[in-house]
Design a binder for these strands. Structure first.
Length: 484
RNA sequence: GCCGCCUUAGCUCAGUUGGUUAGAGCGCUAGAUUGUGGAUCUAGAGGUCCCCGGUUCAACUCUGGGAGGCGGUACCA
């Protein structure tokens, strides 16, 4: 092979921000999505799958931030030069679907969906450019009951996944409340649009930066430890006081202020509905610091937060924070039909939640690999394959070794596959109509106690011979022993 | 986007004040063990020292730029 050829070989590498997921994690993922699905279906939502790719204009451009007008979405042009994009959430495709099938859908329409979504952004710790979301949305219901229901669904889902009560919280606020705050602070009008965004972003950071940090962001700005300067909203001291005051007093105390009336009414009603169903403050709690997406929410917004702390490998405490969220978006379908359709939804960040759950000590249950039938004699492959099929027909994971290496390598292979046992039939056993079953798990335990090679050889721990006819039964018993 | 750190074997990392054949541990392959995963010993394979330019007799090392990774921060539909 020429040198030029060698140099032109591609490097085996992953695209930035993407990752491979291997068997154990996929298994955990499947378990998890199964449990989530069960809760969602119990709440009466029906499954809907839409494609990962849509026409760009159908997905819409929800990138109102002045800073980055068009980043964030993976897009490309089709043959006919139409722009297509990978979906960046599951809500935009839902809006398209509802608009397209409006006539025939039952209203309200309740659907759940899960799948990978894609964002063309810089990946960060625990953040990738492909990740899984699991959504439930109700379209066509304007009452607050629909929102309350999603909060309860969120709580039930987390508990179904093994998060203990008290280790999570569903926080609820309302965009109307924040609108009230902005007008109370005198920030109405076109020329204050930028400031409004900055104020909301500052409010969103309260739990991380505290009152002090938020005050800086409301005023001149704030410089963080990394040296980055975040420009502030440049509010007057009086305006800042207004915002800080709002953050410090309970939501209900705003009830007499007309600016906050609509938001407070909604939230108190939501709280009442949840409380009546047994979901008290320890699970679903009003919290005026919840902000969420800035552009499209129009009513209640909620966020599911894990509240426990966990130490990472270096012993440093890690907070997981938000693992899901949602809210009411009444304008999304109107983009297509011109008709205002009320909608509300909740979305779980599956990948993130899974990372959190794996850290709170779900003991890694080593799943057993397949039984491996060793090939002792290449002339007897048909016999080995027959044994393999007999095990498979009995519902036992099994495979005949398909490589070309010797017995020792085959044993190592079985070891690496985490096999419960291997099946050995060389000429000795065949002459007697027997097979040797070697229990790899017991064998490993025995090996720990044996230091001397001679002893190891002579002991040949944890193996026994049985008649061919009893192979399936014996293997079945062995596996059962290790699983129990 | 902004700030900081990092990039040498499959993995984790040494190393060279710029000098000719770049190292370790683990892992991998094989042998000691004619049919047995562990342990021990032995041997072997495996590297454009991230990329491109500059300085130099000489660059893996110095320098400029770039890419990638990590960690903050910003943004997050």
């Amino acid at each position: 092979m020429s040198k030029a050829n060698t140099n032109s070989r591609p490097e085996a590498r992953l695209a930035k921000g993407f990752r491979d997921i291997e068997a154990p994690e996929l298994k955990a993922l499947a378990d998890m999505t199964g449990k989530i699905r069960e809760v969602y279906e119990r709440y009466g939502f029906d499954a809907l799958e839409t494609p990962a790719i849509e026409y760009t204009d159908a997905l819409g451009k929800f990138l109102p931030d002045q800073d980055r007008p068009n980043a964030g979405v993976f897009s490309f042009q089709d043959e006919d030069e139409q722009w297509m994009s990978l979906r960046y959430d599951l809500t935009a495709p839902l809006a398209r679907y509802v608009a397209q099938n409006y006539q025939s859908l039952p209203k309200p329409f309740r659907r759940y969906a899960f799948g990978n979504v894609y964002r063309n952004e810089k990946p960060g710790p625990g953040r990738f450019r492909q990740f899984m979301q699991f959504d439930a949305d109700t379209v066509g219901a304007e009452g607050i009951a629909a929102d309350a229901e999603l909060c309860m669904l969120a709580a039930d889902t987390l508990e179904a996944l093994g998060v203990k009560r008290g280790d999570y919280r569903i926080k609820v606020s309302s965009r109307k409340l924040l609108d009230g705050l902005l007008s109370a602070a005198g920030l109405e009008g076109e020329d204050n649009a930028g400031r409004r965004l900055t104020v909301l972003r500052a409010v969103d950071k309260l739990d991380r930066l505290g009152i002090e940090g938020v005050s800086q962001l409301l005023g001149k700005g704030r410089k963080d430890e990394s040296g980055d300067f975040t420009k502030g909203a440049d509010l007057t001291p009086a305006q800042t006081m207004e915002v800080i005051g709002f953050l410090e007093r309970p939501i209900a105390e705003n009830a007499n202020n007309p600016a906050f009336q609509a938001g407070v009414d909604d939230l108190l009603k939501l709280q009442e509905i949840c409380a009546a169903a047994g979901y008290e403050d320890n699970r679903i709690r009003l919290d005026q610091t919840v902000v969420r997406g800035l552009e499209y929410y129009t009513g209640p917004v909620f966020e599911a937060e894990l509240t426990f702390e966990v130490k990472d490998e270096d012993g440093k405490p890690v907070r997981f924070g938000s693992v899901g969220g949602g809210g009411r978006y009444d304008d999304l379908v109107a983009r297509f039909t011109g008709e205002k359709v009320p909608a509300t939804g909740f979305s779980i960040g599956v990948s993130r939640l899974q990372a959190a759950l794996s850290l709170i000590g779900e003991k890694k249950v080593e799943t057993l690999g397949p039984v491996v039938i060793l090939v002792m004699d290449k002339g007897e492959i048909a016999t080995y394959q027959k044994m393999t099929q007999a095990l498979r027909n009995a519902g036992i994971r099994a495979e005949m070794y398909l490589g070309s290496s010797g017995m020792k390598a085959q044993m190592k292979y079985a070891d690496k596959r985490n096999s419960p046992c291997v099946i050995i039939q060389g000429s000795d056993e065949r002459a007697k109509g027997e097979v040797t079953i070697k229990d790899l798990i017991e064998g490993a335990k025995a090996a720990a106690a044996i230091k001397d090679n001679k002893e190891w050889k002579e002991a040949r721990p944890a193996q026994f011979s049985v008649s061919e006819n009893h192979l399936v039964q014996e293997v079945h018993n062995l596996i059962k022993r290790h699983q129990g």
